[in-house]
Design a protein around this nucleic acid. Structure first.
Lengths: 234, 234
DNA sequence: GAGTGGTCTAGACCACGGT
DNA sequence: CCGTGGTCTAGACCACTCG
């Protein structure tokens, strides 16, 4: 009996996933090459390639020329994490977003932006329904973005201005936690020493640093994401 | 002399990125359709499709049939996050991994696994160079995985056993922080109330819950990731 | 050296969804 | 309706890398 005709690459992907799950192709095992699989599934090699490449991107397979394709030893958990714009994050929860600039001045940053350059230092508070949501401490590189010096950042927040005027090519994010410093506790509506979630993000335009920002979230904040896809028609 | 390949999809992708970046195609603008772009770049439509689809996957473009392709309004920051196996995470830092089972018993879980089912409750400590690294509190669904009842989990840790014997189809992760409870402070080599990073993860095999685990990391832990790709040959 | 995946092509049909 | 992206095909050449 031949396999039921499966034409699309996603169906082929599902079948490959099934074999991996069912241990027909256990972790570490080399699976047949694209040509043979394409023949088995009755599809073109390009279609087979698409299915296998997608699985490799997802971390389920490891592919190397000449060596072939093998099932990943540790079916890696790879999650895609959307870094939200704070305003959207708040409004998506049906809350009213507001923003308050705390301070804005020019200074020489510590180290976050690399070698001593002139930078704009902006601190602000993001609120949801008037309650503190996150404290922002940001450095903007004035060598890269001299026009930022003319921006007050009183109404338009720095993040949104930057998104509109200085898209980045790549970035770097770190998630951690700390005890909220006494200086910020009151602003965040909590008491010194309370554990708070912190994200530290730096973005570049090619080789130039654009901005480096630290967000300290009010207590209770968490990030949520998923691995793999929810149960489809399985 | 060898011209750099101008006809591969990555080069085309880079050129499209350049135009977005240079505001030749500002946010929200509809860009030409695949056929026209393929003609302009002198490539096949499939190649153009590959380049544009990759950018859409990365969140830079939004594509809809008939409506066409437009530059994303908020060049979304989409990071891919690799959820590491703890042993690897530790060994990758050149440290020696060790594992200590704290407790193991059968009970009815609270809610993490869904409606009351019999489950195995395992608590353990992961160490790096003999120093506490993370405290693990795990429930394993015995309805889905009855064979887990025969596993002592004294030498092989639960995560690795599960990876080998019960691959998941999808999962759900939450990152947060909290003050370390008095009951765990000593185990983690710290004092009660210290801020600690917490991950809560649940995994499924199709519709069945496999396991739900909470990891409390020793102070100082952070997660690092990147957005976009580091500066290539630009 | 030779086998494998990576990519490109030219053409085709289809599915979705604005108009 | 009909333009747009989504996908498939059959064939081809290339680049990497293992043995």
């Amino acid at each position: 009996m031949t396999q039921p005709q499966i034409n699309n690459w996603q169906a082929i992907q599902n079948e490959v996933l099934r074999r991996i799950h069912a241990r027909e192709w256990p972790p570490g095992q080399v699976i047949p090459n694209e040509v043979d699989l394409a023949a088995e599934f009755g599809c073109a090699r390009a279609t087979m390639n698409r299915a296998l490449r997608a699985l490799a991107d997802a971390g389920m397979l490891e592919r190397r020329r000449k060596a072939g394709t093998r099932v990943a030893l540790h079916p890696v958990s790879r999650a895609t994490l959307d870094i939200p714009v704070i305003r959207q994050e708040i409004e998506d929860r049906g809350l009213k977003y507001s923003y308050n600039l705390i301070a804005r001045n020019t200074a020489t940053p510590l180290a976050s932006l690399g070698p001593a350059q002139k930078a704009l230092h902006v601190t602000a508070l993001h609120c949801a329904n008037a309650a503190p949501y996150a404290y922002e401490d940001r450095w903007i590189n004035l060598s890269t973005l001299p026009e930022a010096a003319n921006q007050p950042f009183t109404v338009i927040n720095a993040n949104e201005w930057l998104l509109m005027h200085a898209p980045f090519t790549h970035g770097d994010i770190r998630f951690s936690c700390m005890a909220v410093p006494a200086a910020h506790a009151k602003r965040l509506g909590t008491t010194p020493g309370t554990p708070v979630f912190v994200t530290q993000r730096t973005t570049w335009d090619h080789a130039r640093t654009i901005t480096s920002v630290r967000l300290i979230f009010a207590p209770g904040y968490s990030i949520h994401t998923t691995i793999g896809s929810p149960p489809l028609a399985d």
